[in-house]
């Protein structure tokens, strides 16, 4: 047996009354911003719900982040980024803002009943898996419908799985699911596979995989747990039921902007608009990573944007003081 032990739990912090910078979100973008800000000796608070590392932490194995020739586990990478930020004094608060006024000077944030102020805010809240909102999806979530292969994969040992979405995420997670499942069928809306070739080859090598392209998912069936998916061939319109025990959806991502949506400028898909300095429409507020409009949704890109945001915030603060 092979065990790992994550020490990345965020210790409780004694919140100060005010900070130079508050970063919201501790994915790769937020943690990188925290490394730069705290190393520049700004008092830095990171507010994060969920685990350090964000979406990257829920990815089994990452092969395209530089510095790790053999690849690195997402959990390990998140842990290391967190440790690096904490080393320079960044505090990490586990939770989310209860209220938030980022347009004021200073900016006000309420955390766990306590009001704090900050001179600058960096938004790095990333994305969350999109739902398809087909019949059965909501009802059967947690009953065979899942958005997290690393979480729920172990429940599908020797079972039949349908993965919806043949993008890189879907195929990558299917390779992980192949450790458990007997068979994995990837259903894709488009007539072609969008995923990187290297992933497709690896998926095919598991010997457990198949693709069904140009099919639309109409619904997920099952009484108290998943029994199958109903799909339709898009050119002929013919429908069929594919029986399976689990359905994992990788159909895209939606930005997590709810707490700021009324304050900062968003593009038509709801991503935060930023300029080349990661500045948002509000003074003293930057955004970085997957939550921003036009982002290349990769860890390497999120890390770069996080660094830019923190450096720009530092310039701004030193010009103000």
């Amino acid at each position: 047996m092979d065990f790992s032990f994550s020490v990345s739990g965020t210790p409780e912090v004694d919140l100060k009354d005010s900070y130079d910078v508050v970063i919201i979100g501790a994915g790769p973008a937020g943690l990188t911003a925290a490394i730069y800000a705290s190393r520049a000796q700004l008092s830095t608070l990171v507010v994060n719900k969920g685990v350090a590392g964000g979406l990257a932490a829920s990815t089994e194995w990452i092969e395209n982040y530089p510095g790790f020739p053999e690849g690195v586990s997402g959990a390990e990478l998140g842990r290391a980024m967190q440790a690096q930020a904490q080393r320079f004094g960044a505090e990490i608060f586990n939770g989310e803002p209860e209220t938030l006024d980022i347009a004021s000077h200073p900016k006000r944030i309420k955390l766990s009943g306590k009001d704090i102020t900050t001179r600058a805010v960096i938004i790095a809240t990333g994305t969350t898996p999109k739902k398809l909102n087909v019949p059965g999806e909501a009802e059967l979530t947690g009953r065979g419908v899942s958005y997290c292969a690393t979480c729920d994969g172990p429940f599908f040992k020797d079972k039949q799985i349908v993965v919806v979405g043949a993008g890189s995420s879907g195929v990558q997670e299917s390779i992980f699911l192949a450790k458990f499942a007997a068979k994995i069928t990837i259903v894709e809306f488009l007539p072609t596979i969008q995923a990187e070739k290297i992933l497709v080859e690896r998926f095919e090598k598991t010997g457990k995989g198949a693709f069904i392209l140009n099919h639309e998912l109409l619904g997920i069936e099952g009484a108290d747990k998943v029994a199958g998916v109903r799909i339709r061939e898009r050119s002929s319109g013919s429908e069929r039921l594919l029986s399976c025990d689990g359905v994992f959806l990788y159909v895209g991502l939606a930005p997590q902007t709810a707490p700021f949506a009324d304050a900062v400028g968003l593009d038509k898909w709801g991503y935060i608009e930023v300029d080349s300095s990661q500045r948002t429409s509000i003074e003293g507020v930057w955004a970085a990573g997957d939550v921003t409009a036009g982002a290349t949704r990769q860890i390497a890109a999120a890390v770069g944007a996080g660094a830019t945001a923190a450096i720009e915030a530092e310039h701004y603060l030193s010009s103000k003081s």
């Binding site: 932490a57 829920s58 959990a75 172990p154």
Partner: peptide, 13 residues
């Protein structure tokens, strides 16, 4: 929980 679930510690906590 499962040990590989990054969201689980939130619920356990």
């Amino acid at each position: 929980v499962t040990p590989t679930c990054p969201y689980c510690p939130g619920a356990v906590r």
